[in-house]
Amino acid sequence: MSEQDQASGLRKWANLQRQQQQAEGAVEVAAAEHVPEQSSSLLTPTVAAVEEPATMALPKPKMPLIVVGLPGSGAPQVNKVKARLGQWSMLGRSWAGDPDDWDIRIVMAESSDLAQLRDQYSRWALWISSDADTFADMFSTLRQLHERGGPRRLLALHEPHLPRQGLLDNLRQAAGYYLNMELLVLAR
């Protein structure tokens, strides 16, 4: 039942109550016994008023994205990933969609259950920062994923100002050549 229908029904009920009190005078007991039949249906909630509307959409399930390469876990790290997905979405990358549609899960590369997670989740990403030791750190992370049965294909999540030439290409090529892993680097 819509809010307008409910408000209209309440106004009718209030008007009927006022009319009853005026007609009955000061005798409240008689007014309580003398409820017109048409107003009794307004006092009793109907099934339609209690039930949820049939047009209510079910919440869209979130797409899981497993992210490795971040130092630690928690809300700040998840927000960092969502911010990057939001930037890609604003650049017209339709696959990125709304960052809130993603279920971001931060996983450490040294986790013992990488093979189980790989079988359970198909979307994986490697967070690539831009500090001086990034290549060594990220290659080490990829090597751990390789040794522990992790995924063989990952999306490179990197800061927007990192050029494709240099760090990103070197990391992509090393992952492919030495570890037989595909690191998907998106062009701007």
Rank of each mutant, 00 (worst) to 15 (best):
L58P: 00
K60R: 13
K60G: 01
P61G: 00
P61A: 09
P64K: 14
I66D: 06
V68A: 09
L70C: 09
S73T: 11
A75S: 09
V78S: 04
N79A: 10
K80R: 15
V81N: 00
A83V: 05
A83S: 14
L85N: 07
G86W: 06
G86I: 04
G86E: 05
W88L: 14
M90R: 15
M90S: 15
L91I: 00
L91E: 13
S94T: 12
W95V: 11
P99C: 05
R105C: 01
R105V: 11
I106C: 06
V107N: 02
V107K: 11
E110D: 14
S112Q: 14
Q116T: 14
R118M: 08
D119C: 04
S122I: 00
S122Y: 00
W124V: 01
W124N: 03
A125M: 05
L126P: 04
S129L: 07
D133M: 13
D133N: 15
F135G: 01
F135K: 09
A136R: 08
M138T: 15
T141I: 12
T141P: 03
L145M: 12
R148C: 08
G150E: 07
R152L: 14
L155R: 06
E159W: 08
H161C: 01
H161K: 10
H161A: 14
R164S: 13
L167A: 13
